[in-house]
Structures are given as structure tokens and as C-alpha cells.
Design a protein around this nucleic acid. Structure first.
Length: 803
RNA sequence: GCGAGUAUGGCGGAAUUGGCAGACGCGCUAGACUUAGGAUCUAGUGUCAUAGACGUGCAGGUUCAACUCCUGUUACUCGCACCA
């Protein structure tokens, strides 16, 4: 085509002006909501990886519209975040200006690729009309006791005077300046996400997430069932431990408590070796800032002298140790140690010369512990465990748990790895948390009618000396009146994390212009939920979990219609550089979609990205392969010259045409995008083998190809004088016509291919057997041998078994 | 360490249910047309070899038949990482 970009622009304009992809809330059509993760509009522009997933979902959206669905396929911007803030600080502008520019670039790029988004629903998380509702929802969390302040340790760079995320502090070194990261206690807003552990686990049953996505969620929640036991301290006081192995409780020879926990602080008065203990605590606080993996070769720790704990089941007094492998903020901050049946305890005991008592009769423990995974499920018997001696491990586990509960030593509990959500960020470019601290009333929520609480319009904001948000420096913004008593008060200067705005954006798309509510119940009931959500693998754990938590909370307070608002979630693989490495500027392997569109056209890029490989797996870029896809589109164009003046379909193409319709439908809805393209190539090749094809033949190919390559197909379709494809109906196939009357099948002798025969659909088993045995090469291989049996799989294969 | 995933020609990858492994495309080889080719068309292209044998990371197993199911094992990728 003489100017591909001109044609693409023409159809993009057509779709825009006709509002071809506008989704309307209501009507007779069946609603279907397709969602792709909205991007962070970075300065780098659209990545070819974005193109992959947006095209995939676009193809489904386009097909389903033709099939008569009311498809919602929206797009927006997740634009709060550190890069925009950094850029703005450097250039002394407001981040919203940088964001505006980036969105413009992204949107232009998306338009040039012909994605069928309903642009009337576009918004950015940084729009006051949007973040007003993010703030409003935070207030609901607060009002329902789900938001609270707590002191937690944060990564702190003493040089940058800044709080760092775990990613930015990887390796215990500040990513920006390279100085040593420290731990610093800071008061932060928290959301009680751990209250939802069980619900988030159970809710997975009401979703259609891919298995690997579900597993990611399950692992993140990290449920473990066990027993919590109360331990008395000699001379008064007590603490609790949690164990998943109550069967080993008689094997306790010491306890280990966290150096950063509360318990050691309580015990400190009675500690005889205070200096030693304090030194270890200090050592740990430094260590926790470094990359622990490197330091965990040995099991360090010190005994807490002067205090002993009592094992409740046998009254035995055992020592207490400090060990940095016990975490202060996980579980109870203390563990029981059974060196005979836990490798970590074993190593610790060896290191510190502690007693090892075997309680399960299961082999040699002189070299290493025999752990749960090794002893459970066998018939090993208990030893050294008083009345439980001789019982099988499985039985003892239950009986010991029962005894602990009956005697009041403890109780069966579930423990979860998932903790509460730290919701504060010491950043400028985020949603301000709408809380006010009044010297008289304490923390007071803003009045809902005063929302949104806008970010101040300033261009200079340096971080404070003590790591507070840059907002803390803007006194005219910070100072306010208490909404309750009118006294002088100060605003919270922390902002929300990036995850906040993306935790509910899919709800807003259902009703994006609503200024009374974040979305009306009516609109949410109409769309019901997100039918199909696609995003990157890196977001399937946290983002999805946060979004589900957010939705479940809204459901519990009656604001959304379903407890799970996302039905299917799939994740796509990355587009790697041609060197099989992640694309990055420094490696020089980045492909800019604009260049490809300019040279080969949007359709070629779209087709190639669908064709490049299994959608769920990473795939390297290949410009050679892209050219192959361009050639395919050129071939489709050339086929136009073969169109004759006949109507209807060519008889000899009937089987492959019906087969292809079925295949495209199936593959598009099962993420088989690469085989969609290959199926269409096969159809086009079949057309190409003929001297001429009918207009209907040709239009069928264009219809089927349209979801992947929408521009060129529209243009060719117009050239043959048909009404636009985006207004056309999806073709239907006839199952009857897929069945072939005659078919070539394989004949094997002892499982090895020896020939092929052509069978008719009506042939019975006997005649197929006869045909198979008549086959020349088959005869040669069965000559002089005894036929044991002949296996005939109808329409598939014949296998002659000989001896 | 734990959890998950992956492994098929020179390359990307097909094989919906156990049923002709390598579809489709790239690349490559030869030829045609051409001033030219990043255009198009034709033929060929898993490996080794003479009929034939061998081939889906490796070693076993089940089956008439295994890329597909089972057992073990290796390598790589991702996630979590002293989780009690």
C-alpha cells in the first residue's frame, strides 16, 4: 500500500469520529469488561511490551464487539510515583506538568497503534476528580477502624535523608548514592490487611484466575496452621511461641527470641549479661540493614543469662537465647527450638553447644536434623515424650495439640505471613492522606465534603532533614484548623503509596464521570465485574492482592456489588531485547514502537507481537520475524487481485474456512494469539493456491484478521466496496462443514510409521484394517510375522502389532 | 533453602484429548523474473546414513502408541527469602 501511515491515520480518525468503541452503560447487549493494566506514563514512552498485551486484549475486544457484546475496554494513567517527582525536582517544575507531557506522548502512541479503547472514560490517578475518591475511600478505612498509626522500622539513607523502599535499598545500599542504609523507626499509617488473610484466601474460589496467579496469591498470604503455646518464665513473666510442629514439643532444649522484639526489652532488668545482650542487639540493628543472605552463614546469638523459661508440657527449665534469625515483627517474636527436628535449630545448637533431644524415632541425627518433611507421613514412633511415647507422629501431633488446649497451655491457631499494609510514603507526588493532627483531639479525619485535599501548586520542594515528606516544608499547606474543635492543627504530610490509586481504578472505569460517588452501584451492577484482566507477572502478587483487599473492604461496607470484582486474571510474558535480555537503555537493545510503526506500520507490529510466541512467556524481539509478518500482510493485500465477480464461497475452501473461523474464536479466547496468526497465514496460503477467489472468500479473511490488523483490513474491505468491518458481524461457522469426507491417516507397524492410507468417513473398522494391510510398505514390514492385533483409532491412526 | 515455571531444528515456536513430532514464520540453499532487491514466484531445508536408523534437557518406567502420563535427575528463569 502506497502510504501505510496515511491509511492508518484515516481509519483511526474514522473510529474516533464515529466513536466506534464507545461503551454505554445499559442496553440490550451483553456487557463484557476487558481490562489491561493502565501504565505508568514514564518519560521513556510506550514500551513494545505494552503493545503486546494491549494488542492481545484489543483483539478480543474487537472480536467480541463484532459478536454483539457491549465491550468495555478502557484506558487510563497510573501517574503518581517517584520518577515523575525526581524529574520534577531536577527541573524545578511541578510533577503534574511532566505527567501531562508523558500522558500526551503515551496517548499519541496508543492511538497510532489503533487500540480500540473507549477514550471517553480516560482518567489519571493524579486527577483531583479521581484522587478525591481515593482519599474518600481512605477515610472509610479509617472510620471502620481499618487504618491506624504504628511505629515501624523503615530503610533510611542518612546521606540522601530519605526513606527508601525495599527495592531502592536492595543489598543494604542506597540505590541513588551508594551509602549504607540504616533502619529507622517511623510512625506510619497502616491498613489492617492481615484481618483479611482468610477472606483473601477463600475469595480465590470465586475467581477464575490462572492457577499460577492463584498460587502467587496463596504464597503471599502464607497461611500456616499450628499451635500457639504460652511459656512461663522462671521468677515471673511469660511469652508465647508459635509452632507448626507441636509433635516435637518435648524436644525443646532452648528458646530463641528476637533481638529487635519487645520481649527482650521487658526482660532487660533481670538480664545478668546486659552488656553482651545490648551489644548483640546493636549488632543486629546494623545487620538488618545489610544484605542478610551474605551474613547468614553462621547462626549467631547470645544467651540471655539470668532468665530461664519453662516448657509447659514437662516443666523443664531451658535457657533463652537471642538470635537474629528470629524476626521481631513476625509471629510472636519468639520460637521454641527443637534441634533434633529442625535444621536451623540444629545448627544453632551445634554452634552454641546445646543439648539435642530426639523425640521421633527416625534415624541418625548426628549430622543434621530430621525435619518435618522427612518424618511426616511415615509410621515413625514417638520417643522421649512421656505418655505420647510409642504413638505414630501423625497421631501424637493431634493428641499433643489436644492436650495443650485442654490443659490451657495454648491453642490451635492459624498464622499468616501477610502483614498489615504500610500505607505512608514520605513523598510529594502521591495522594495526600486526608488526616489532621490536632493538639487537643489527636488524629481527626477531614470532612468528606472538603475533599479533594489538593497537592500544593509549588515548584520547589526539597526533602526535610529528618526524612519527612517534602510537604512538611510547605507551611501554608500544613497549617490548618481542626475540623472538630477549630483549634490550630497540622495536616498529615505523608502521601499514599503508588498501589493506592491502582487498587480501585477498574471500578472507576465503570462510571468515570460520577461526581457524587466513586462509582454508582447501578453502574457497577451493570458491568458486574472485570471479566478479563491482563497484566504483567510482576503485578500478580502484590497489586492484585491490594486490589482484592480494597474491593473486599468496600464490599463489606456495602459499596460494591461483589466481594471479588475481577473474574479472570492472566499475565503475559515480557518482550525481551534481541539479545534475550531485558530491554534497557544501558544495554542498547530497546525497540521503540514509534520507529516500527513508521517503517512497517501499526498492523505489522501488532501482528508480529501476537505471532512472536506463547503469550504467557517471555519472547525475544526479532526484526527479521517482524518483516515476515509484514510480508504476510502484503500477501493479504495482493490477494485482492484474485477476487472474481462471483458471490458466495468457493466450494473447495469450505472446510478450511469453517475450521479457521472456529480456530480463531477458540484461540483468541484461550490466549493462543500466535496460532491465531499462523491459522490466518494458512488460510491466506490456501487462497493463494487458487487462481481466483470470491469477494465473500476475501471478506471472510479480512474479518478474521481484523482484530489483529484492523487498519489494513478496513482499507482493503472498503476497496472491495463493503461496509466497515468495525460495524460488521463476526462470521459463524458450520460444524458440519468442518468434517472432511476423506482423510489421510497414518499406518504404523509396532508404533513406527510405515505408510499412510486415505479413508472415507463412512469406512468401517474392517475395511480400514484391510486398506492398512494392503499398504505396500506395511506389507513389507509384517512379512513373515504374526499379527497380534490391529488397533484402529477412528479418523486418527492404525497400528498393526506384530511378533 | 522454599515455592512456581521452563527445556522441542540454525532461530521464534506448533502439536485443544496419549495417536504421522517440527504446523506457521524467520534464516539458509538452489533456481526464475530483474539494472537492482530488505520485492515477488518455484523447489528444498531435524540429524546420520544406502534401503534404514536416531531424534522433544538427562536416566528409567507405564502403554499397541509418550513432547504429552509416572519416578528420579540436571540446567536456567521468576517470586519469596533465617516465616518458627
Amino acid at each position: 500500500m502506497e502510504n501505510i501511515n496515511k491509511i492508518e491515520k484515516k481509519w483511526q480518525k474514522y473510529w474516533d469520529e464515529k466513536k466506534s468503541f464507545k461503551a454505554i452503560n445499559g442496553g440490550d447487549k451483553k456487557p463484557y469488561y476487558i481490562l489491561v493494566e493502565f501504565p505508568y506514563p514514564s518519560g521513556a514512552g510506550l514500551h513494545v511490551g505494552h503493545v503486546r498485551s494491549y494488542t492481545a486484549q484489543d483483539a478480543i475486544a474487537r472480536m467480541m464487539r463484532m459478536q454483539g457484546y457491549n465491550v468495555l475496554y478502557p484506558m487510563g494513567w497510573d501517574a503518581f510515583g517517584a520518577p515523575a517527582e525526581q524529574y520534577a525536582i531536577l527541573n524545578h517544575i511541578h510533577p503534574k506538568e511532566a505527567v501531562k507531557e508523558n500522558i500526551k506522548t503515551f496517548k499519541g502512541q496508543m492511538k497510532s497503534l489503533g487500540f480500540s479503547f473507549d477514550w471517553d472514560r480516560e482518567f489519571s490517578t493524579t486527577d483531583p476528580d479521581y484522587y478525591k475518591w481515593t482519599q474518600w475511600q481512605f477515610l472509610q478505612f479509617y472510620k471502620h477502624g481499618m487504618a491506624y498509626k504504628d511505629t515501624v522500622p523503615v530503610n533510611w539513607c542518612p546521606h540522601c535523608k530519605s526513606v527508601l523502599s525495599n527495592e531502592d535499598a536492595a543489598g543494604g545500599v542506597c540505590e541513588r548514592c551508594g551509602s549504607q542504609v540504616e533502619q529507622k523507626e517511623k510512625s506510619q499509617w497502616m491498613l489492617r490487611m492481615s484481618d483479611y488473610s482468610e477472606d483473601l484466601l477463600k475469595g480465590l474460589e470465586d475467581t477464575n484466575f490462572a492457577d499460577r496467579v492463584k498460587l502467587g496469591q496463596i504464597n503471599w498470604i502464607g497461611k500456616s496452621q499450628g499451635v500457639e503455646v504460652d511459656i512461663d518464665i522462671v521468677g515471673g513473666g511469660k511469652f508465647s511461641i508459635f509452632t507448626t510442629c507441636p509433635e516435637t514439643i518435648y524436644g525443646i532444649t532452648f528458646f530463641v527470641i528476637a533481638p529487635d522484639g519487645k520481649l527482650i526489652k521487658e526482660l532487660m532488668e533481670r538480664v545478668e549479661n546486659k552488656d553482651e545482650v545490648n551489644a548483640y542487639i546493636k549488632e543486629t540493628s546494623l545487620k538488618s540493614a545489610m544484605d542478610r543472605t551474605e551474613l547468614n552463614k553462621g547462626k549467631t546469638g547470645v544467651e540471655v543469662k539470668g532468665v530461664k523459661a519453662i516448657n509447659p508440657v514437662n516443666g523443664k527449665e531451658v535457657p533463652i537465647f537471642l538470635g537474629d534469625f528470629v524476626l521481631g515483627d513476625y509471629g510472636t517474636g519468639a520460637v521454641m527450638a527443637v534441634p533434633s527436628h529442625d535444621q536451623r535449630d540444629f545448627e544453632y545448637a551445634k554452634e552454641h553447644g546445646l543439648e539435642i533431644i530426639k523425640v521421633i524415632d527416625c534415624g541418625d541425627i548426628s549430622e543434621h536434623a530430621i525435619e518435618k518433611t522427612e518424618y511426616m507421613g511415615h509410621d515413625y514412633k514417638m520417643i522421649n515424650s512421656e505418655e505420647f511415647n510409642g504413638m505414630t507422629v501423625d497421631l501424637a501431633r493431634e493428641k499433643i495439640s489436644d492436650m495443650i488446649e485442654e490443659k490451657g497451655y495454648g491453642r490451635r491457631v492459624n498464622n499468616y505471613k501477610m502483614r498489615d499494609w504500610i500505607f505512608s510514603r514520605q513523598r510529594f507526588w502521591g495522594e495526600p492522606i486526608p488526616m489532621i493532627q490536632c493538639p487537643k483531639c489527636g488524629w481527626v479525619p477531614m470532612n468528606e465534603e472538603d475533599l479533594p485535599l489538593l497537592l500544593p501548586d509549588v515548584a520547589e520542594y526539597e526533602p526535610t532533614e529528618d526524612g519527612e515528606s517534602p510537604l512538611a516544608n510547605i507551611t501554608e499547606w500544613v497549617n490548618c484548623k481542626c475540623p472538630k474543635c477549630g483549634h490550630d492543627a497540622k495536616r498529615e504530610t505523608d502521601t499514599m503509596p503508588n498501589w493506592a490509586g491502582s487498587s480501585w481504578y477498574f471500578l472507576r472505569f465503570m462510571d468515570p464521570k460520577n461526581d457524587k460517588e466513586f462509582a454508582s452501584m447501578e453502574a457497577m451492577k451493570y458491568w458486574n465485574r472485570v471479566d478479563w484482566y491482563n497484566g504483567g507477572m510482576e503485578h500478580t502478587a502484590r497489586h492484585l492482592l491490594y486490589a482484592r483487599f480494597w474491593v473486599q473492604f468496600l464490599f463489606n461496607i456495602g459499596l460494591v456489588p461483589n466481594k471479588e470484582m475481577i473474574w479472570t486474571r492472566v499475565s503475559h510474558g515480557m518482550v525481551l531485547g534481541s539479545d534475550n535480555q531485558k530491554m534497557s537503555k544501558s544495554k542498547g537493545n530497546v525497540i521503540n514502537p514509534d520507529d516500527i510503526v513508521k517503517e512497517y506500520g501499526a498492523d505489522a507490529l501488532r501482528t508480529y507481537e501476537m505471532f512472536m510466541g506463547d503469550y504467557q512467556m517471555d519472547a525475544p524481539w526479532s526484526t527479521e520475524s517482524l518483516r515476515g509478518c509484514k510480508r504476510f500482510l502484503d500477501k493479504v493485500e495482493r490477494l485482492k487481485d484474485k477476487v472474481n465477480d462471483q458471490t458466495g464461497f468457493t466450494q473447495s475452501l469450505e472446510v478450511i474456512q469453517n475450521k479457521t473461523i472456529k480456530k480463531i474464536e477458540y484461540d483468541l479466547t484461550h490466549m493462543g494469539y500466535n496460532t491465531v496468526v499462523s491459522g490466518l497465514m494458512i488460510l491466506a496460503n490456501a487462497y493463494d493456491d487458487l487462481d481466483s477467489i470470491t469477494k465473500d472468500d476475501y471478506r471472510l479473511l479480512l474479518l478474521l484478521l481484523n482484530p489483529i490488523a484492523p487498519h489494513i483490513t478496513e482499507e482493503l474491505n472498503e476497496m472491495i466496496g463493503c461496509t466497515p468491518l468495525c460495524e460488521a458481524e463476526w462470521p459463524s461457522y458450520d460444524e458440519e462443514k468442518i468434517i472432511e469426507n476423506t482423510k489421510e491417516i497414518a499406518v504404523q507397524v509396532n508404533g513406527k510409521l510405515r505408510g499412510t492410507i486415505t479413508i472415507h468417513i463412512d469406512d468401517d473398522e474392517q475395511s480400514i484394517k484391510e486398506k492398512a494391510l494392503e499398504c505396500e510398505n506395511v506389507m513389507k514390514h509384517i512379512e513373515g510375522k504374526e499379527i497380534v492385533r490391529i488397533i484402529v483409532i477412528k479418523g486418527k491412526i492404525v497400528n498393526v502389532v506384530v511378533k
